[in-house]
Nucleic acid binder design. Structure first.
Lengths: 256, 256
DNA sequence: ATTGAAGACATTGTTAACAATCCTGTCAAC
DNA sequence: GTTGACAGGATTGTTAACAATGTCTTCAAT
């Protein structure tokens, strides 16, 4: 599958003491689910738009879903909040974030700073196997589009960008990209035209071509334009699409 | 002081229920210390090099230091670990991170992707007050150097970079910059020549000049060269400066 | 019929006790 | 004297009970 073993290292430990007692079902289900796995799963559900902005993530439901204790869920939610993928409201619970227009601009500004560089580095460093993985991924994207698998198409579009960060071989930038791609899904869910897919895979195909010709500068340029293109197709002009600004609306009735 | 009110929003709540009971010491100490405050304090202590790599951060000590319960400390440590500023070893505790050569390269690669863009945006967007704050900051840097306040000089050098991110007005990039600057302090502590300061303030001064002439491209270029300069002055060639690779050392005695 | 209050219920936040693991110092054996 | 085992203490990890807050339903009053 091609994956770089990163993260998880700094929260090491978690030795399988359970794997020792070789009872029934020796192999399966002995695996403990770690916080990062939960975080990763929720990231992907957000990317899939299976968890739209504002969705409540109740602790008990998550405990049941992942089959873990409340403490672990709580830690996972804290990590998700620190990435601004969810919002933690005191005594009210966790909700999938609803990025504001300002936050949306910030996310894309950060992506424009990071991802063109990532694309350039990825082209410089990608191994032949990495490029093969990328081509396979592109094929899957096309297939999802052909067969109208909307959810798969969205997920694969996002994963294309994180895959680039993996090929660039930089764990820090990969982590940042995952966060930004996930938040982008929320942004597209709020400000995107309904029914439109976030990424044209034409652009993705062009980037893969840049890999084949090892043209790093070209990949960088395409990625920049690609991100610009995505942002341009958002409705970021509307001020506070939902949740009208009541304060501004009703202060000094004379001035409205 | 000029500060942008960001972060903390998404972990909102924490209403002062204690402030209600107006007993003695009505005003002070009613403030509860939040996780982010603890994280921020530890960030700064790491930047100051008061917490060198490998320092153990025991829960009980931190509880006493911050005057909070263990749960809050535990959450803070998790957040710090998710930023890779500390390492969490199961059943052993939290230790200030000791970045590897690979991680060091990754951090500076990320900074090179982010901070030149931040510098450009900051020049484009800085208000006159923001520029004044920047000039004051530069003065403080010079003062610290003149009076040989090494610790202050180091801290101010790092804060210059986060201040740039504040002037750029992008909360996402500000958060990333804080993380990267903090980790850079650890990296300089490990791989830097002893006694040398991490940033030349000549570069910082040149960047401030670019603000005055509103030359955003120049600021971007200087920042890029500045970061290159810092990285060049590190000993990243040595493999595992400390913690010798015993495995590689003692396998096949004939080959050593 | 709508509004407001009150109480039951559900969910989140905190604390404290307990369990598990690791570190350290002592002591016996060789 | 060095090495290994063992026990005690200290630290971390987990669980469960409890407290606090929010939410929802019911019901009465206007």
């Amino acid at each position: 599958m091609f994956s770089i073993p990163l993260e998880k290292a700094h929260i090491s430990g978690r030795q399988e003491n359970l794997a020792m007692k070789l009872e029934k079902t020796d192999i399966l289900s002995a695996e403990e689910i770690a916080e990062e796995d939960i975080v990763e799963r929720i990231f992907e559900a957000v990317i899939d738009q299976q968890l739209p902005p504002g969705t409540k993530l109740s602790e008990s439901a998550l405990c049941e879903a992942f089959g873990v204790g409340r403490m672990r869920i709580r830690r996972s939610l804290l990590l998700l909040a620190s990435r601004e993928v969810i919002e933690l409201h005191a005594n009210k619970g966790a909700y999938v974030a609803s990025p504001s227009v300002k936050q949306a601009r910030e996310v894309f500004e950060a992506r424009l700073a990071l991802e063109p560089t990532i694309a350039r580095l990825a082209v410089q460093r990608a191994t032949p196997e990495g490029i093969a993985t990328l081509k396979e991924h592109l094929e899957m994207e096309f297939a999802a589009h052909r067969t109208n698998q909307r959810r798969d198409a969205i997920r694969l579009s996002g994963q294309f960008h994180t895959l680039m960060a993996q090929l660039a071989g930089n764990a820090v930038m990969l982590r940042m990209t995952k966060e930004l791609v996930t938040r982008s899904s929320l942004i597209i869910g709020i400000f995107g035209a309904p029914g439109v897919t976030n990424c044209r895979d034409d652009d993705h195909a062009a980037i893969v071509d840049a890999f084949l010709s090892r043209d790093d500068k070209l990949a960088e340029t395409i990625m920049r334009e690609h991100l610009h293109h995505i942002e341009k197709h958002l409705d970021l002009e509307v001020q506070s699409k939902r949740s009208v600004d009541l304060v501004g609306l009703f202060r000094h009735p004379k001035n409205r």
